[in-house]
């Protein structure tokens, strides 16, 4: 047991899986000698050598494409894309190949591939370094999409993702990389894909969220509890296929739902969550569902970032409106 930040927990997951399974290889830009621009892969080159921790030429398309080939032929590649804004150069291989090869080979070739990328806003970054594109990946049949919110979950989810027989998009909220540390067990443990976590129990309203928004919602819930509003927080962890059971049982209990994500609102993950609630437990709703999300805009640069990135204040306001309905 050690107190680790999220990026350290990710490093630990990679190190332990690589030690346990020599099919696991890492490839990406600056992942070797440099240890990754966020240091997620630091020390791994020394331990596992240049054929397991592969510094690649600067070409995301072929990073993902070659990782698909590795996965087809029996390896368990973990491809790192340096920032989520550059995933699109590799999107073709994710969309057209990684997600389809099992189907296109009628079960002969599965693709046990993990594509990792630092994700999301909140760190006053450059253009193309603050995006939240998870819905694009969720919309691709055949993919799984995972976004952790804590160091403990990051390690357990990454281990599960590497062991998964199918492609997983693993998005790491970069704001959380070093935001806090927590106790993370040594050795392998798994947080199963597809299982949400109840971050806090409550009876008045369910907040459904994931990733960088979980700590924002926790702050809001703390404040609301002081006002006497008892909020439950559901952290999806696996954004798709999400834990529909956890969502519906929470909303059936509380009768109110607020969905929080930093990604743009329209056609976002929140829309799918809202539809799921409407389909499964509409009659238990006491108020309309609200979404607190990034707006349908290009992620703004530092000076305006806070107006787009959902804050605890925005979450509190939405909860107030829902409670007063």
């Amino acid at each position: 047991m050690a107190r680790l930040s999220m990026v350290e927990a990710i490093n630990a997951a990679l190190r332990e899986k690589m030690a346990a399974d020599d099919r696991v290889v890492i490839l990406g830009e600056d992942v070797g000698v440099d240890g990754g621009v966020f240091r997620a892969t630091v020390g791994l080159l020394d331990q596992f050598g240049p054929w397991r921790v592969i510094d690649t030429p600067l070409a995301e398309n072929c990073i993902v494409g070659s990782a698909v080939g590795m996965a087809i032929s029996g390896l368990r590649p973990v491809a790192e894309i340096q920032f989520e804004g550059f995933m699109f150069k590799g999107f073709d291989h994710i969309y057209s190949h990684a997600s389809r090869m099992l189907r296109r080979s009628q079960g002969v070739y599965n693709v046990p591939l993990v594509v990792r990328a630092p994700y999301g806003a909140g760190v006053r970054a450059l253009e193309h370094h603050s995006d939240a594109p998870e819905a694009l990946f969720c919309h691709v049949p055949g993919l799984k999409v995972v976004i952790p919110s804590t160091p403990y979950d990051a390690k357990g989810l990454l281990i599960s993702s590497i062991e998964d027989p199918d492609p997983v998009i693993f998005l790491e909220p970069k704001r959380l990389y070093r935001l806090f540390k927590e106790e993370v067990p040594d050795g392998e443990y798994r947080v199963p894909l597809g299982e949400a976590r109840i971050v806090r129990e409550g009876n008045d309203l369910s907040i459904i969220t994931y990733g960088g928004m979980v700590s924002v919602c926790e702050r809001a819930a703390q404040h609301l509890s002081e006002e006497g509003v008892d909020v439950e927080i559901v952290d999806l962890r696996t954004v798709w296929p999400f834990d529909a059971e956890a969502i519906t049982s929470s909303v059936s209990k509380t009768g109110r739902a607020t969905i929080v994500h930093e990604a743009p609102r329209s056609f976002g993950v929140g829309a799918e969550i809202a539809a799921t609630i409407a389909e499964r437990c509409l009659l238990s709703l006491l108020a309309p569902i609200k979404r607190v999300t990034g707006y349908d805009v290009i992620p703004p640069l530092a000076k305006l970032e806070e107006y787009n990135y959902p804050t605890a204040d925005r979450v509190i306001r939405a909860v107030h409106e829902t409670m007063q309905f």
Binding site: G65, G69, G74
Partner: peptide, 13 residues
């Protein structure tokens, strides 16, 4: 690109 990945696999193993 997939061929490249399979060939990398051959080198790795």
């Amino acid at each position: 690109c997939h061929a490249v990945g399979i060939a990398m696999q051959a080198r790795i193993r």
